[in-house]
Design a protein around this nucleic acid. Structure first.
Lengths: 230, 230, 230, 230
DNA sequence: GATGAATGAGGCTTCATTCAT
DNA sequence: GATGAATGAAGCCTCATTCAT
């Protein structure tokens, strides 16, 4: 889902611009509604700022004015660039998930063994946290509420693909004798999943550990436990 | 968005310091509301309207909606210009007192004799009533409750200066033999003070008497009494 | 208007108890609505407390709960004694005005000379301030808003009688040569009226001056002025 | 009413001290709201409802009306029991943390070995999740924003005690040779901490696994890893 | 006579959003 | 591209009032 440039082709379906009620099928370009992307760079810049504020304060607690303040403009001016506060959120999360799946898909298509796949997925996850820390934090906090809305359908789509990828990997591992078979596999799935993503809540880029380093330590704990083997 | 080094550009957003990019418009984007910036004329206009409603109905009985109605806008719109209903009240009274003391200070610095000082203060007071009738009426009705709040500290400050100015003048007059010495001076102070300011409750500008004319008659009564001299 | 015991005979007209819609003219004592005066002493006590709070904080700013707190009961309990907050106010002011006019009528019927009448009215006024300080303060602050309501019709009735009594006295005084004839008589009226009643805003019973003493000093100022006669 | 000596009985009303006449019911009638008194059972019941809604929708996205709806009452009615929406949140979290620390303190005082301590703490945590699922979920989502407020000071206090307890236990374990010494101990701490608490986001009481069962599996993974030992 | 709990209306305020300039 | 001013809906909270106990 969601090729990188898809967001540029979708705008009409997002704005609820009332179609000329009767005939006249040719879109006369109608209202002056800014629609989208008058300048992709500025857009991206503003989304980065918005993501930071969302992550810091929570989506609901973030007012459009706070974002505008952080961007050095007035609240109303944001509407030249975006349809709504929600569409900023949407674009932030969509962009993140798009890139995330780019990475995951590479891993999954590499046809590695289950343990190597798990290692690669975890490492890739920490890299995404490193690059999209704000988006990940937002995702963690808000996705539960959002999945209910059609507009955020892609969140649950992604969740399902995610779950499938992990469960499959774990099951393969159990079948091949590299993962323990005495564990509830869904519990193990949640264990691994949460273990990785919650890191976004405390991870600060440039804070001593590289994503790969953190991934290595996490994997070591997940795979071998923290107790000394006897 | 969110290159590793993006975190270097983040402080802006956290410290709320608007980017200088756009040339830093007037609004310093404080913690909360516009506070002072947006066009002083409109502000003054709205404060005048609010003062009239406050004076007419009392501060507590005045809903923000009534003010907005009188201004031809919606209640919420007032908050573009003011922080709160109370801050409107505050600004109305502060503005009034500031101008009042401009006038009083001129009189007091003129080093007139006590009787002339009293005449000048009374006349000045009626002029202020003429110009700030609504504010004076509000002051009369509300100041008692307000002095308790730190925000309205300046009200009691003003009251003290006021009392001092009048008492001094009266005492000088007694000492110099122009005012009677058989009167309780604090009672005389209250007498003069109240006598003047209550006028705001019935005075209507443009209603036959100029402030100076009213002042002259009041002074005649205060100084010489209403009985025929025998 | 309003004999002392009238408040006991009026209840039905105050409560909006819906008359049995159709026939059945005999009031079956219907709803359990407390109506009035289950105990006149407690009632009077509570009204005194309420008056103090109204005077202190203003009618609108006074919540029923504040009154109840001061009375050591819960807000709802007040409704056993009174129909509504407003009816407390009404009864406070009505009681005060009734007593006031008892005093005034005695004076006016005594057929004194204008100067003596004025002295007697002023003295009587200060006595009322002494006895009904809270009610007077409430009257000062609230009567302007209240006169608009039919329920408080008696306020404007009283004001008119009041104005008539004073103007007549002043005019008689001018005609008989005891009051100056070079003054605007309405201004003089307001001067005397305000001079007296504002005292309620600072007067504290038992504070050094008896009402008669204050009256004497006020009269001295009003009649002879504060300046030394030359 | 209002005999001269009435002023002697007035202090009661100004100091808000309820008359002892009626035997001083529970409610001390403080400056504002009930605060604590009204029936603890109803209070607890409502807090439970509120906690569920907060957990489900997030604190900010939860309107007071939603809580009231869930409780079968009107929004305003909640304010008979609580000062504010925020104070509900506060009480929910405080109650949870109090009980949590009751459990933790028992464990910590038992002077167990590091591995047994870790097991007991984890098990205790899952029990708390079982009992206070909503509160835990709220804590996870909101505590970050809340710690900034003085009112929620106890959150960071708790966090520090929490961190200290865990780090100490881990360090002891490393020192005694039961936990691996090749791991970053702070990373291990976060690993264990998050691993446990995120469970609140998906745990449903009565859903197949008892808290003890989940604890056992989690501990197994945390201690020994998910990979098969070679 | 009073309490405890609730109602309902309304008040102040916030905020996403719009739009003329 | 952005500002200034406004809209309208909604949110939190207060308060007079009611009523069963």
């Amino acid at each position: 889902m969601s090729k990188p440039n898809q967001s540029a082709s979708e705008p009409n379906q997002r704005t609820n611009e009332p179609n000329q009620r009767t005939g006249a099928p040719k879109q006369t370009a109608g209202k002056k509604k800014p629609q989208v992307s008058p300048s992709p760079e500025r857009r991206r810049e503003l989304l980065g700022i918005a993501a930071d504020v969302f992550a810091e304060q929570g989506y609901n607690a973030t007012t459009v004015r706070k974002i505008a303040d952080a961007a050095g403009m007035l609240a109303g001016s944001l509407y030249y660039h975006f349809d709504s506060k929600e569409s900023m959120l949407e674009e932030i999360l969509r962009t993140f998930l798009t890139e995330l799946w780019d990475g995951y898909d590479s891993v999954l298509q590499a046809q590695l063994g289950p343990r190597e796949t798990l290692e690669a997925l975890v490492t890739e996850s920490f890299r995404e946290i490193d690059r999209h820390r704000a988006a990940v934090a937002i995702y963690q906090k808000e996705s539960r509420h959002l999945v209910a809305q059609k507009r955020f359908q892609y969140l649950s789509d992604s969740q399902q693909r995610f779950e499938k990828a992990w469960l499959t990997t774990l099951e393969r591992g159990v079948a091949e004798g590299v993962f323990r078979d005495d564990l509830d596999i869904r519990l193990a799935y949640r264990f691994v999943r949460d273990t990785v993503w919650v890191a976004a809540s405390w991870y600060r880029p440039g804070g001593g550990h590289s994503p790969e380093e953190i991934a290595r330590q996490y994997l070591s704990m997940v795979l071998d436990g923290i107790s000394v083997r006897t």
